[in-house]
Protein backbone atom coordinates (compact mmCIF):
# COMPACT_ATOMS: atom_id res chain seq x y z
CA UNK A 1 0.00 0.00 0.00
CA UNK A 2 1.89 3.10 -1.23
CA UNK A 3 -0.09 5.29 1.13
CA UNK A 4 1.81 3.69 4.01
CA UNK A 5 4.95 2.53 2.25
CA UNK A 6 5.72 6.00 0.92
CA UNK A 7 4.46 7.88 3.94
CA UNK A 8 7.85 8.84 5.36
CA UNK A 9 9.21 10.22 2.11
CA UNK A 10 6.08 11.90 0.77
CA UNK A 11 4.08 13.24 3.71
CA UNK A 12 5.82 16.62 3.74
CA UNK A 13 5.31 17.23 0.04
CA UNK A 14 1.68 16.08 0.24
CA UNK A 15 0.97 18.41 3.15
CA UNK A 16 2.84 21.31 1.57
CA UNK A 17 1.16 21.14 -1.80
CA UNK A 18 -2.27 20.41 -0.34
CA UNK A 19 -2.10 23.39 2.01
CA UNK A 20 -0.74 25.61 -0.75
CA UNK A 21 -3.27 24.62 -3.38
CA UNK A 22 -6.26 24.23 -1.08
CA UNK A 23 -5.40 27.52 0.60
CA UNK A 24 -5.17 29.29 -2.76
CA UNK A 25 -8.49 27.75 -3.78
CA UNK A 26 -10.07 28.85 -0.52
CA UNK A 27 -9.00 32.45 -1.01
CA UNK A 28 -9.55 32.70 -4.77
CA UNK A 29 -12.69 30.64 -5.18
CA UNK A 30 -14.15 30.43 -1.69
CA UNK A 31 -13.56 34.01 -0.54
CA UNK A 32 -13.28 35.67 -3.93
CA UNK A 33 -15.88 34.13 -6.20
CA UNK A 34 -18.47 32.32 -4.11
CA UNK A 35 -19.73 35.42 -2.24
CA UNK A 36 -20.31 37.13 -5.59
CA UNK A 37 -22.21 34.15 -6.93
CA UNK A 38 -24.31 33.96 -3.77
CA UNK A 39 -24.78 37.70 -3.92
CA UNK A 40 -26.06 37.44 -7.48
CA UNK A 41 -28.54 34.79 -6.40
CA UNK A 42 -29.83 36.84 -3.49
CA UNK A 43 -30.01 39.92 -5.69
CA UNK A 44 -32.10 37.96 -8.12
CA UNK A 45 -34.30 36.70 -5.31
CA UNK A 46 -34.92 40.22 -4.01
CA UNK A 47 -35.48 41.41 -7.57
CA UNK A 48 -38.07 38.72 -8.14
CA UNK A 49 -39.72 39.41 -4.80
CA UNK A 50 -39.89 43.15 -5.46
CA UNK A 51 -41.15 42.58 -9.00
CA UNK A 52 -43.89 40.37 -7.64
CA UNK A 53 -44.78 42.96 -5.02
CA UNK A 54 -44.84 45.69 -7.67
CA UNK A 55 -47.05 43.56 -9.90
CA UNK A 56 -49.39 42.92 -6.98
CA UNK A 57 -49.51 46.64 -6.16
CA UNK A 58 -50.16 47.51 -9.80
CA UNK A 59 -52.96 44.99 -9.90
CA UNK A 60 -54.57 46.41 -6.78
CA UNK A 61 -54.20 49.90 -8.22
CA UNK A 62 -55.86 48.74 -11.44
CA UNK A 63 -58.69 47.19 -9.44
CA UNK A 64 -59.16 50.43 -7.54
CA UNK A 65 -59.15 52.46 -10.73
CA UNK A 66 -61.60 50.14 -12.37
CA UNK A 67 -63.88 50.49 -9.38
CA UNK A 68 -63.59 54.29 -9.52
CA UNK A 69 -64.19 54.22 -13.27
CA UNK A 70 -67.25 52.08 -12.74
CA UNK A 71 -68.64 54.52 -10.20
CA UNK A 72 -67.93 57.45 -12.49
CA UNK A 73 -69.44 55.59 -15.40
CA UNK A 74 -72.59 54.80 -13.45
CA UNK A 75 -72.88 58.39 -12.33
CA UNK A 76 -72.47 59.76 -15.82
CA UNK A 77 -74.93 57.22 -17.18
CA UNK A 78 -77.51 58.29 -14.61
CA UNK A 79 -76.71 61.90 -15.46
CA UNK A 80 -77.20 61.24 -19.14
CA UNK A 81 -80.48 59.49 -18.48
CA UNK A 82 -81.64 62.45 -16.41
CA UNK A 83 -80.68 64.80 -19.24
CA UNK A 84 -82.54 62.69 -21.77
CA UNK A 85 -85.63 62.57 -19.56
CA UNK A 86 -85.40 66.32 -19.04
CA UNK A 87 -85.09 66.92 -22.76
CA UNK A 88 -88.03 64.63 -23.41
CA UNK A 89 -90.16 66.42 -20.88
CA UNK A 90 -89.12 69.77 -22.30
CA UNK A 91 -89.93 68.68 -25.82
CA UNK A 92 -93.29 67.35 -24.64
CA UNK A 93 -94.09 70.62 -22.94
CA UNK A 94 -93.13 72.61 -25.99
CA UNK A 95 -95.20 70.36 -28.24
CA UNK A 96 -98.15 70.81 -25.96
CA UNK A 97 -97.91 74.59 -25.97
CA UNK A 98 -97.54 74.62 -29.71
CA UNK A 99 -100.43 72.26 -30.12
CA UNK A 100 -102.62 74.36 -27.89
CA UNK A 101 -101.58 77.51 -29.70
CA UNK A 102 -102.48 75.87 -32.98
CA UNK A 103 -105.72 74.66 -31.44
CA UNK A 104 -106.67 78.20 -30.36
CA UNK A 105 -105.78 79.48 -33.77
CA UNK A 106 -107.90 76.79 -35.42
CA UNK A 107 -110.72 77.48 -33.02
CA UNK A 108 -110.56 81.15 -33.83
CA UNK A 109 -110.55 80.45 -37.56
CA UNK A 110 -113.38 78.01 -37.09
CA UNK A 111 -115.43 80.52 -35.13
CA UNK A 112 -114.64 83.15 -37.72
CA UNK A 113 -115.70 80.84 -40.49
CA UNK A 114 -118.88 79.94 -38.59
CA UNK A 115 -119.65 83.61 -38.16
CA UNK A 116 -119.03 84.20 -41.82
CA UNK A 117 -121.22 81.27 -42.77
CA UNK A 118 -123.95 82.56 -40.43
CA UNK A 119 -123.72 86.02 -41.94
CA UNK A 120 -123.88 84.64 -45.45
CA UNK A 121 -126.86 82.52 -44.52
CA UNK A 122 -128.63 85.48 -42.97
CA UNK A 123 -127.92 87.50 -46.07
CA UNK A 124 -129.10 84.68 -48.24
CA UNK A 125 -132.23 84.29 -46.15
CA UNK A 126 -133.00 87.99 -46.41
CA UNK A 127 -132.47 87.83 -50.13
CA UNK A 128 -134.79 84.87 -50.28
CA UNK A 129 -137.35 86.92 -48.31
CA UNK A 130 -137.07 89.76 -50.75
CA UNK A 131 -137.33 87.39 -53.71
CA UNK A 132 -140.26 85.57 -52.06
CA UNK A 133 -142.04 88.86 -51.30
CA UNK A 134 -141.64 90.02 -54.89
CA UNK A 135 -142.77 86.59 -56.10
CA UNK A 136 -145.75 86.68 -53.75
CA UNK A 137 -146.69 90.23 -55.00
CA UNK A 138 -146.40 89.04 -58.50
CA UNK A 139 -148.46 85.90 -57.87
CA UNK A 140 -151.23 87.83 -56.06
CA UNK A 141 -151.32 90.42 -58.83
CA UNK A 142 -151.66 87.79 -61.47
CA UNK A 143 -154.21 85.61 -59.67
CA UNK A 144 -156.28 88.14 -57.92
CA UNK A 145 -155.35 91.18 -59.89
CA UNK A 146 -154.77 92.92 -56.65
CA UNK A 147 -151.91 95.19 -56.25
CA UNK A 148 -150.34 94.39 -52.85
CA UNK A 149 -148.00 96.94 -51.41
CA UNK A 150 -144.42 95.68 -50.99
CA UNK A 151 -144.37 96.21 -47.24
CA UNK A 152 -147.44 94.07 -46.72
CA UNK A 153 -146.09 91.32 -48.94
CA UNK A 154 -142.87 91.32 -47.07
CA UNK A 155 -144.54 91.07 -43.69
CA UNK A 156 -146.68 88.20 -44.92
CA UNK A 157 -143.65 86.38 -46.30
CA UNK A 158 -141.72 86.90 -43.05
CA UNK A 159 -144.63 85.55 -41.08
CA UNK A 160 -144.99 82.50 -43.31
CA UNK A 161 -141.31 81.75 -43.21
CA UNK A 162 -141.25 82.13 -39.47
CA UNK A 163 -144.04 79.70 -39.13
CA UNK A 164 -142.04 77.41 -41.27
Amino acid sequence: MPQIAQLAETYSSQIFWLLLIFGALFFIVGRGMVPKVVDTVSQRDTQIASDLAAAQAAREQADREEEAWRLRENASRANAQALVAEAKAEAGRRNETRLSEAQTRFDAQLADADARIGASRDQALSEIETVAAEAAQDIVHRLAGVQVPAAQAQAAVKEAMHHG
Partner: peptide
Protein backbone atom coordinates in the same frame (compact mmCIF):
# COMPACT_ATOMS: atom_id res chain seq x y z
CA UNK B 1 14.83 19.96 5.45
CA UNK B 2 11.36 18.78 4.46
CA UNK B 3 10.90 17.33 1.00
CA UNK B 4 8.38 19.22 -1.11
CA UNK B 5 8.83 17.45 -4.43
CA UNK B 6 6.17 18.35 -7.02
CA UNK B 7 4.62 14.91 -7.40
CA UNK B 8 1.87 13.47 -9.56
CA UNK B 9 -0.33 13.94 -6.50
CA UNK B 10 0.48 17.66 -6.37
Amino acid sequence: GYNIAFTNSA
